[in-house]
Amino acid sequence: MFSNPIVLTVLVATLMMLLLIAVVIITMVLSNRRNVQQEVKMAQMHLDHEKGLRLLQDEVMAEVARELHDNIGQRLTFMKLQLQQQKAVNPASAVSLLPVSDMVVETIEEVRVLGRSLNSDVIEKNGLVYTLEKEVERMRTLNKFEVHWEHDKEPELIKDQKVIVFRIFQETLNNLLKYAEAKNVYISMGGGSNFKLVMKDDGKGFDVEQVMSSGKGAGLKNILKRAELGKLKCSIDSAPSAQGGKGTTFTLEKIV
């Protein structure tokens, strides 16, 4: 069979064709692998850059919190003391000064709460459960919806992850406040090594894909980006009430 020159020609031509394809494909695979590696490096650099920006943002927020506490807080406390002194010196003015005095006390409290929510050091000092609880309390005072909060022990997360969870929690609560029109919000957090934060509401819901693809989803994109930075898995399950949706469920958990 192989002595026939035509058969030999056909076989050699077929093998040469196969060899040519093999060379082309191997070259392509190697070149593609280089491209993919480069792309991974670029993505890592981008992630590091984002992380740097977030750290800077946190530092600025901490600085603002310190300024609120040390400067504005002190001035307000001084004002409060002055008002008390004025009331003591001139008891007749006590009635007229009462609304001002109340407003100063309220402002001091608000500045204190705001400072605490801006300063991420509080999380490290008091723990995530305590910090989230304070946020829940702050929400409850607004009387916009009923907050049902349950939690386990302190989750095993590194400091950066705790800060990210806290910021995402704040952003999600703000979104709830602004858009959800919910009556009840159910928040639960699994602790220890099984960290899982679930925030569920009975509000009007929304079309996740539509919001994400339109220019309106900046807050949501921010949440997803933060979660990615903290190596956390984030999922949002929602549908508009017109499409039979029953509120929104937001889940944040640790990537195992």
Partner: peptide, 18 residues
């Protein structure tokens, strides 16, 4: 498809001759 088609060209080219 590329492997099949390209490598079959020499064989099918000579098919009727065989």
């Amino acid at each position: 498809t590329i492997i099949y088609c390209a490598c079959d060209i020499p064989y099918f080219g000579m098919h009727n001759y065989f």
